[in-house]
């Protein structure tokens, strides 16, 4: 399995990369390559030009200021998994992506631009209310994660737009967790639930829950959130709220040979409950 032919340029800056891709009819951006290169080898993707972002230092690294954590698009999952600045749910999920070698190369920007429905990161970013900063010929903008993921392998990125960084609120008193059911072959998510919760006065004050792996794009679990908001956090309330996730998943649940749509829909409540319990246990 070998890629078909393409030209290659290494961009020195985001501006150059934008210019190169927007002026070419069949160009692809290359970050860590761990979504794109497998697709090239299977010849599912056959671009004429690859624009390599890999050496743009400005796109790398995690920084925290004024209650916000900013993650450069080229930051690897390994870096995220080892970070104390990121919300726990992100570092925890990053450590479950692929394997150590994949985490050493795979990047945040590459991952979310690919928008694989079985990926872990979109779920986390939706749960965290992330802002995805992009730069294109028309300048820069920030896209809320809720709006970034459109469908299977489809994002709201415009032609020529490049993800530069992802911003999430820093975690303070909240607790967060990611619970994943693995496909036993690919190790991608059959189902992943990300939850972040804050507790005040003995009740759940702030809650964000998202699920992915089972739907064409990761979804926000509004029904679960509504059921638990303002409630004390115990097994009963969590189980009750988690059961609402079936409504959040909706009708468009994916199935494969290891996990049918019906199965995924049915186990979702238990997985959501585990994520909520773990998040609650971490909340201060």
């Amino acid at each position: 399995m070998y890629p078909s032919k393409f030209d290659y340029v290494r961009a020195q800056s985001v501006e150059e990369a934008v210019e190169r891709t927007s002026s070419h009819s069949n160009a692809k951006l290359l970050a860590g390559g761990h979504s794109l290169i497998p697709a090239l080898k299977l010849r599912l993707a056959q671009p004429d030009l690859l624009v390599d972002l890999g050496r743009i230092a400005a796109l790398k690294g995690i920084s925290r200021h004024n209650g916000t954590v900013s993650v450069g698009a080229l930051t690897t999952h390994a870096t995220c998994a080892a970070s104390d600045d990121l919300p726990k749910v992100w570092s925890e999920a990053a450590g479950l992506i692929g394997d150590p070698q994949v985490r050493n190369r795979g990047t945040v920007g590459g991952n979310i631009a690919h928008a694989d429905p079985a990926s872990d990161l979109p779920t986390v970013l939706i749960a965290l209310g992330a802002q995805i900063h992009v730069q294109g010929t028309a300048g820069s903008r920030a896209i809320p994660a809720d709006e970034f993921f459109v469908d299977l392998f489809t994002t709201s990125l415009e032609e020529g737009e490049i993800i530069t960084r992802v911003e999430v609120p820093a975690e303070s008193n909240q607790g967060s967790a990611y619970t994943k059911v693995f496909n036993p072959a690919s190790r991608y998510a059959i189902l992943g639930v990300a939850a972040q919760v804050a507790i005040a006065g003995g009740v759940c004050r702030q809650l964000r829950v998202a699920a992915g792996g089972s739907t064409p794009k990761a979804i926000r679990a509004h029904h679960v959130e509504a059921a638990l908001q303002g409630q004390p956090l115990n097994d009963t309330t969590i189980q009750h709220a988690a059961a609402a996730i079936a409504e959040d998943l909706g009708e468009e649940v994916i199935g494969d040979m290891y996990a049918s749509a019906a199965y995924r829909r049915s186990i979702a409540a238990q997985i959501a409950a585990r994520a909520l319990s773990a998040a609650a246990a971490r909340a201060r």
């Binding site: 290494r10 290359l30 390559g33 290169i37 690859l50 390599d52 150590p100 070698q101 050493n104 190369r105």
Partner: peptide
């Protein structure tokens, strides 16, 4: 210095 899968890296990326 990092373990990587060399089947998922282009030679040009390693320049």
């Amino acid at each position: 210095g990092q373990a990587v899968k060399s089947c998922t890296v282009l030679a040009v990326q390693a320049d």
